[in-house]
Design a protein around this nucleic acid. Structure first.
Lengths: 236, 236
DNA sequence: TGATCTTTTGTACGATAGTACAAATCGTAT
DNA sequence: ATACGATTTGTACTATCGTACAAAAGATCA
């Protein structure tokens, strides 16, 4: 509604607003929120610092707008893929499809909103690590619904696993996903060049396969939480 | 053994240096490096800002000292547990013991150095997300050896899985570990109070169980990286 | 006790942060 | 062409940052 459908669409350079958003997204995702100044963003976007204030009022407002931009499309895409996945007959295949529906939109690195999840997902990872307040609120509001939908779907295809276990394992999935986007070069380093951590397609396959297996693991019996501590003995 | 041997051990308050280190560790781990000022740290430690400069010269130096403090003891503990784990006969049990040897020292939340890994691990997670330069260097130097040792040990107990896959899966393990320490309340929230994300013992069990299963997953055939994309179709 | 070294305090300085605001500039409709 | 609203620019203000440094305070030993 800020827009205006009739005619007046100005801006000297072709949408400076978008350029600022893109620059901020990139810088926040790689350096964190506090390490990046409004002046840094403006410079990266080829804009004037005052322009940022004009379009987004505050630095928090800029972050907020980035979230607003991405949350909708990304959750929509996830919903579509989830709906398709739920139609898969074979239970094993269905589980894999569900996990894939969760992972793919977060990992795909197209530049537009619908597909361009990688940068935004990395941004969310960094904001979560920094304990950013603005991000925390939006995340809980926007993503918990989606998370619940996925957890429910997974639970349906694994009825014998307690919901609690599924929550934990999907939590691990998100952590692995985040970390893969934050530090991809670590994979290349540890595999001595045999794997490319930045190869999104391969990362997705690895993550999906590992996660499906973790979901299929036997349930933890909650009754005796501190049962077996096999063998491992400390010397001290 | 830090204590005294000859004579000159001063300090008005009982080891202000330690208080500053502890305060910085806590604040960095929860808010990130850039969001915390030297004055914040000094205040939390009940010290004067100048004292921080005196003991650690710069803010980076303070972070560096935190790493120096923890890296040794933590890797030592991991080595001990790994050595014990490798002696386990049964392959399944051995794998679980190895994973546990990796996870436990990072998760235990005692206050002293040998066991107090949770806060430090969270700190590492946050620094990794922020792309902190100081941290990045130390991490690569100090932890890659440990990581390789664990990857090798896991590979030995799972000879049929390619090393690349094991690297990926242990990468996911670290991501899940980090995220569990960064955002434990998310687990409580998503499980609707049925699980406590802050319960370290339970988190460890869940993580170990899920991870062992992921390691045991069948290998990905590298030959055809983009093989099956079952069913999932997009409507757009 | 007085000399000397270590630690803490208080203060200040330059740099940079977020943001406000007036002037300049541009695009568009009249 | 002119007027007007939208945008961009330039600049300035205040706050806070990391850090330096001199003075004060405390501890140790001759």
């Amino acid at each position: 509604m800020v827009r205006k459908s009739t005619s007046k669409e100005t801006a000297r350079k072709p949408n400076m607003r978008e350029a600022i958003l893109a620059a901020a997204e990139e810088l926040f995702a790689t350096n964190g929120f506090n390490a990046v100044s409004v002046r840094d963003i403006a410079q990266a976007a080829g804009a004037n610092p005052g322009s940022v204030t004009y379009h987004f009022k505050t630095k928090d407002g800029l972050l907020l707008e980035i979230y607003r931009r991405h949350c909708g499309p990304m959750n929509l895409r996830r919903s579509e893929l989830l709906a398709a996945a739920k139609r898969v007959r074979d239970l094993q295949d269905r589980l894999e499809a569900i996990v894939r529906a969760y992972v793919v939109p977060a990992f795909t690195s197209g530049s537009d909103l619908a597909g361009g999840g990688a940068r935004f997902t990395r941004l969310r990872a960094v904001m979560s690590a920094e304990g950013n307040e603005v991000a925390r609120k939006i995340i809980a509001q926007t993503f918990d619904d989606t998370s619940h939908a996925f957890i429910d779907a997974i639970h349906e295809s694994l009825p014998h696993i307690p919901r609690t276990d599924i929550v934990w394992r999907s939590h691990f999935l998100l952590g692995a996903l985040y970390y893969s986007l934050v530090t991809p070069e670590r994979v290349s380093r540890l595999s001595r060049g045999e794997a490319d951590g930045g190869d999104a397609a391969n990362a997705i396959e690895q993550l999906v396969q590992a996660t499906v297996a973790s979901f299929q693991a036997p349930a933890l019996d909650q009754a005796a939480p501190v049962r077996r501590r096999p063998v491992v003995s400390s010397k001290t």
